[in-house]
Nucleic acid binder design. Structure first.
Length: 804
DNA sequence: ATCGAGAAAAAG
DNA sequence: TTTTTCTCGATG
């Protein structure tokens, strides 16, 4: 019988990133299992913290006095054997703490914080009692909320032993309950009661019959009302008469759609059929094979996904389908739900914490076999996974940009191996990394070269904005684009306009002295917001009024440069007054559900033109859109990022696919100042193959991924010199430990050197084969631990998405 | 000696 | 992350 438990505690530091041994109290033996959340006393003050049981022991291999587990937070483990292993692997791989990884895999509500209370245990004078304790003998203790004087008084009382601190770990993971009714008696007993009823007691009679029909079950009152056609008050009568009991039943907050319509698998074309066949074969034979499904927009990838999932379900297995958050639209969700009905659980950022928890529980209990969701859905607690799908696998949102900095693709690969389940990576424009692996035969390539319905790809024309500018006054719209927009308006068709915001901002600059208004906290220019009439910093949220004159030379010629969606909208309304324009950007979609609402309005033809940022590029499917305009295709190209071309190519290809998906022919107009750039020219013809070859060649010559692995190490400090100095010291330290043919770039200040009053310096390590990297970096994280007290922050990002 | 602030160390 | 302990200068 296990007497001890190994526990990872919720103290995210390097030195506590290991299991601690605790004694299992007698009353909890048999109940404690690995993967459970528990409350344990930790540290000198034995404050209570949350922890995860990761193992059980019969004897102690620790020579010190053990503390005991305080209590359980659940009766069942929340992490199974697989997820516990995954957490460990993830922690190692991303240089994150195990506890951080564990919380990342679970719904937010399980991250409970410890509350502290101050308890009076001795007499104090009236004044103190009143001032500090508000006349009560227990108060919530939040040191950072209190001023220094009160705090020192309290600490003094504590030293004198007059107050003590107590702890409470609040469990926020609560299932929502509603009242239900349960019959208390047997069929015969109800029959006897019925005989004694007065003749006019119709409702009671009806209730008795109803109770007889639901013997030994519990039914929610709301449902019971419907089923029996009775009013709620009669159940209360029934309770008083002892016929039934009212008890709380757990319900799911998840808004399961009422739409019960189901669709059927579509007939597949030749290439789709081959893809489904190969994937199904791997599903049937438990092969952890990775497929790269390449197909232009509109080639029917989704149908391949759905039929492959159906195959996994047939085999009694489960499936995960990952999509970028942005394409997790109602259209998309409906499609999956119509195919698989209540077997589907959806996880996305639009759900409240409670709703996410409920969806998670449905998955965990095995009530849902198909999980659709964004990045974190890759951790869905499904058992017996038969297939994992990752749509738009090149999307950067699959990489988390805070710790643990994991890439969902890597996690998917890991789980695919664990379960012996195939992984399908789908995209029209795969990441170079994945495409290169397919080339090498590590992944199996599946091609969908044809658009379904054999529609031609839209005609893409590129407008040279340099020429435009020479001919007309400065404008966001070329003559071609304006003509095309007017044309659609006349025909009652719709248009989509995309403003590429990547690497772009509408900043304000003085035309006389060149002064640019910047954030006082961060080294980046402030962005103009016309709706609030302020200048805002997009990094720290700093806000200030729009200047009337240049703060530097007092000239009045301080003007806006660059373009925001609002400005474009204003120009559009002036140039085409008859058009109805819907704007979709971070500002108009901040409120929950606005994203969907705008799309729905556009789908209902409430507007002629949808104007937005990148978020409109993906996953939408409006049959009446026949024109897509890209206002500024090249702003991303100017970024100091070796992936700039790749991202531009992907974005343009994606957005072009939005035009003319139904029976109407589509047209795409791309405005650019770099009409000869290869990324733009090749996107014009959707020539991924050629782009791949060219870009791979460039990466090869530059020594970039996928030819090299990369790791970014960042250091920050409030003082610039400190950050630079420490980064240099770390660089020298690392250089001695890594392989001689590994390359360190830097140290350099980051592109935005100062954010939130901190300075950032970084290095990038490039390597091909290096046995020492992992251990060197782990050792580094351990030894720099003590620096955090001196105001340093150090982080590691393996395979970063953006650098330089 | 005593206090208090701040750094350092330890956490089963 | 939080708590206790250590250290050190200021204070009486």
């Amino acid at each position: 019988m296990a007497q001890m438990a190994q526990i990872i505690v919720d103290v995210p530091t390097m030195q506590t990133n290991q299991p601690y041994t605790y004694r299992i109290p007698d009353e909890l033996t048999d109940q404690i299992k690995p993967g459970m959340r528990v409350v344990v006393p930790f540290g000198r003050g034995s404050r209570k913290v949350q922890g995860f049981v990761v193992g059980l022991d019969e004897q102690v291999d620790f020579d010190g006095t053990l503390k005991s587990i305080d209590s359980l937070l659940e009766l069942h483990p929340v992490l199974n054997e697989e997820l516990l292993q995954l957490a460990q692997w993830l922690a190692k791989k991303t240089f994150a703490f195990q506890i951080t990884c564990m919380f990342t895999m679970l719904p937010n509500v399980m991250r409970s914080k410890t509350k502290r209370f101050l308890h009076l245990i001795d007499e104090v004078d009236e004044q103190t009692l009143f001032d500090l304790f508000n006349g009560q003998n227990e108060i919530l203790f939040e040191p950072d909320q209190l001023d220094a004087k009160t705090l020192s008084q309290l600490l003094k009382l504590k030293r004198e032993g007059k107050v003590e601190v107590t702890y409470q770990v609040a469990n926020r993971a609560k299932a929502k309950t509603m009242l239900g009714i349960t019959p208390k008696l047997s069929f015969e007993q109800y029959e006897e009661i019925r005989a004694t009823l007065p003749h006019n007691a119709h409702s009671q009679n009806k209730l008795l019959s109803y109770l007889q029909s639901i013997l030994n079950t519990t039914v929610k009152i709301a449902d019971a009302e419907q089923q029996s056609d009775l009013k709620a008050n009669i159940f209360t009568t029934g309770e008083h008469k002892g016929w039934l009991t009212k008890d709380p039943v757990e319900v799911y907050r998840s808004p399961s759609s009422k739409d019960k319509t189901r669709d059927h698998p579509f007939e597949l074309n030749h290439h789709q059929a081959i893809a489904v066949e190969k994937i199904s074969h791997a599903v049937n034979n438990d092969q952890a094979e990775t497929f790269l499904l390449e197909g232009v927009t509109g080639s029917g990838k989704t149908e391949v996904y759905l039929q492959s999932i159906a195959q996994a379900l047939n085999k009694g297995k489960t499936a995960i389908m990952l999509v970028p958050e942005i394409s997790l639209t109602p259209q998309m969700v409906t499609r999956v739900k119509q195919r698989f009905g209540s077997a589907v659980a959806v996880l996305h950022s639009g759900l409240s914490n409670g709703e996410k928890y409920d969806e998670w529980r449905r998955i965990e209990k095995g009530e849902a076999q198909v999980v659709v969701g964004a990045r974190s859905a890759v951790f869905a607690p499904l058992k017996n996974i038969g297939l994992i799908i990752m749509d738009e696998e090149h999307e950067t949102s699959y990489k988390q940009d805070e710790t643990p900095r994991y890439h969902a693709r890597d996690v998917a690969l890991w789980r695919s191996k664990y379960h012996g389940a195939p992984l399908v990576l789908g995209s029209a424009t795969p990441s170079l990394e994945s495409r290169a692996r397919a080339q090498k035969g590590v992944y199996q390539q599946l091609l969908l070269p044809d658009r379904i319905n054999e529609q031609p790809l839209p005609i893409v024309s590129v407008v040279d904005m340099r020429k435009e500018l020479r001919q007309h006054a400065e404008s966001n719209f070329s003559t071609d684009l304006l003509d095309a927009l007017n044309d659609r308006l006349a025909r009652g068709e719709q248009s989509i306009l995309m403003l590429n915001r990547r690497g772009y901002s509408s900043f304000i600059m003085c035309r006389d002295c060149g002064f640019v208004l910047k954030c006082p906290n961060c080294d980046i220019s402030l962005t103009l917001h016309m709706d609030t009439h302020t200048m805002k910093c997009h990094y720290c949220g700093h806000e200030e009024p729009i200047p009337r004159q240049c703060p530097n030379c007092h000239s009045a010629k301080i003007r806006y440069y660059g373009t925001g969606t609002q400005k474009v909208q204003a120009e559009l309304e002036q140039k085409i007054p008859a058009a109805n324009v819907l704007r979709m950007d971070v500002d108009t979609t901040r409120r929950k559900g606005m994203h969907e609402k705008i799309l729905k309005q556009f789908g209902n033809h409430e507007a002629d033109i949808l104007l937005g940022t990148q978020m409109i590029a993906k996953g939408l499917d409006f049959p009446d859109v026949t024109l897509v305009g890209v206002l500024n295709a090249d702003t991303g190209l100017g970024l100091p990022d070796f992936r700039a071309s790749e991202h531009t190519f992907q974005l343009l290809t994606q957005v072009s696919g939005r035009a003319g998906r139904a029976d109407k022919k589509g047209e795409v107009i791309v405005q650019t100042f770099n009409p000869d750039h290869y990324a733009i020219k090749l996107a014009q013809t959707q020539n991924f193959e050629k782009f791949f070859k060219l870009e791979m060649d460039l990466r090869h010559r530059g020594g970039y991924p996928p030819y090299y692995y990369t790791v970014q190490v960042m250091t920050s400090h409030e003082k610039e010199a400190q950050a630079a100095k420490k980064m240099l010291a770390i660089t020298n330290w690392l250089r001695k430990r890594i392989a001689p043919d590994s390359i360190i770039l830097g140290p350099t200040p980051q592109a935005i050197a100062r954010v939130n009053r901190r300075y950032y310096y970084q290095i990038v390590i490039k390597y091909k084969q290096d046995q020492n990297i992992q251990s060197a970096l782990t050792e580094m994280m351990q030894s720099v631990q003590k620096l955090s007290g001196q105001g340093f922050q150090i982080s590691i990002d393996a395979e970063p998405q953006h650098f330089m």
